[in-house]
Amino acid sequence: MTKQDKNIGDSEIAYAKINLALHVRKRLSNGYHDIETVFAFLDCGDLLSVKSAEGITLSVIGPFSSGLSDTDNLILQAAHLLASKAKKPRGVHIVLDKHLPIASGIGGGSADAAAALRLLNRFWGIGLTIPELAQLSIPLGADVPACVISQTCRGQGIGQDLEPVDSGALEKYFALLVNPLVPVSTASVFRGWDGIDRGGLQGTTPMEIALSGRNDLQSSAESLAPIISEILLRLNETNVVISRMSGSGATCFGLYESLEEAQAASDIMSTSSERIWTMIGKLK
Rank of each mutant, 00 (worst) to 15 (best):
Thr71Gly: 06
Pro164Thr: 09
Gly67His: 14
Ala116Asn: 01
Met245Thr: 10
Phe174His: 13
Ile56Lys: 07
Cys153Ala: 15
Asp112Gly: 06
Cys147Val: 06
Gly213His: 01
His33Gly: 08
Asp161Pro: 08
Ala114Val: 04
Asn215Gly: 01
Asp34Gly: 08
Lys284Gln: 08
Cys147Asn: 06
Tyr256Arg: 06
Leu259Asn: 15
Val240Asn: 09
Glu36Cys: 01
Arg122Ser: 03
Leu128His: 03
Ser167Gln: 10
Asp43Ile: 13
Lys87Phe: 04
Leu201Cys: 01
Phe190Ala: 06
Arg122Asp: 00
Ala142Cys: 08
Val240Ala: 14
Tyr15Glu: 02
Leu68Trp: 04
Leu211Thr: 07
Gln160Thr: 15
Ala210Arg: 01
Ala115Pro: 00
Ile61Pro: 03
Thr251Val: 05
Ile75Gln: 10
Ser29Ala: 15
Val148Leu: 07
Phe39Ala: 04
Arg118Gln: 04
Met1Lys: 12
Phe253Asn: 03
Tyr32His: 14
Gln263Ala: 15
Gly141Ala: 10
Leu120Gly: 04
Ala169Arg: 15
Glu230Met: 11
Ile280Val: 13
Met269Ile: 12
Ser258Glu: 09
Asp143Trp: 08
Ser137Glu: 10
Ala14Thr: 12
Ile126Gly: 01
Leu42Ile: 06
Gly247Val: 03
Lys26His: 05
Ala103Gln: 13
Cys147Pro: 01
